[in-house]
Amino acid sequence: MDRRNFLKTTLAAGGGALVSNDVRALELRHPEEFVGILVDTTRCIGCRSCEVACAETHDMFVPDVLSDGALAQPRKTSERQYTIVNRFDTEKGEVFVKRQCMHCHQAACASACPTEAMNKTLKGPVIWDGDKCIGCRFCMVSCPFDVPKFEYNEWNPKLVKCTMCFERQAEGKKPACVEACPTDALMFGIQVDNLEIARHRIYAHPDKYVHQIYGEHEAGGTGWLYLSAVPFDQLGFRTDLGRTPYPEYTREFLYAVPAILFGVPAFLLALNALADKGEPAEHSELGFHPDEGGQQR
């Protein structure tokens, strides 16, 4: 056992209880697993504390949650807000749903980006790097959840989306929205643990929840998981996204590229040799030859 692993194990065994509520403890138990957040929409009361906490943490527009009446209409995240809460009237009364970037396991935006400005980090959050971004907006075209937002009215625009508080996680803190949630509707943890907790809640209360965890399979699985009492299509979720991770759609094409780049030139050269009519090799370039007095043929 090397020194690093030894330290880790000792820390996990000895210090586990000490820092049990700390993100670092999770990391020590699952050093290579994605983190994620479980949203239980049956617990959400629509207070929008998460919206405020998110805005304050990232120095963005802070909504006036008491009087702006924003719950009247379903909204989308925007270039001003990483996250929003929507209210839906359903067969089981009003339901509140927080939306933000889903942090897909195989992120379409990250595979679309020609400069890796959108980057799927090893811990799970998908983050954006302004030094690399060329502003092509291919991430917006590719994202099945329509998440990345563009600052159309800036001369130096940014791509705006939830970062799952990547910086806070690096400091060992939970994402701001999770910390701000008064009802434990949001739960931050290791993805596999969240999935087990979600399944447990469904099995323990089979009549309370629909038997689906949104994000378990959608678009190949996402870092955010949702539990709900009503079918997800009533809550503004797209249920037609399929289980295929989106980068898979371009897999065959990108596979073919190197094959074409070495195969086709060789093939063309062979065709060229076959098309040789046995005339003198003298072939004029691009049409005319000056020695022929101007006119070709």
Partner: peptide, 25 residues
């Protein structure tokens, strides 16, 4: 059309190479 055209050389100079991207190609 690029939002940040002054970074347009990034895919060529390796800041970074987005090998998985069709647009990079």
């Amino acid at each position: 059309d690029l939002g940040r055209p002054w970074h347009a050389m990034n895919p060529y100079i390796g800041n970074n190479f987005g090998y998985a991207s069709v647009l990079f190609l």
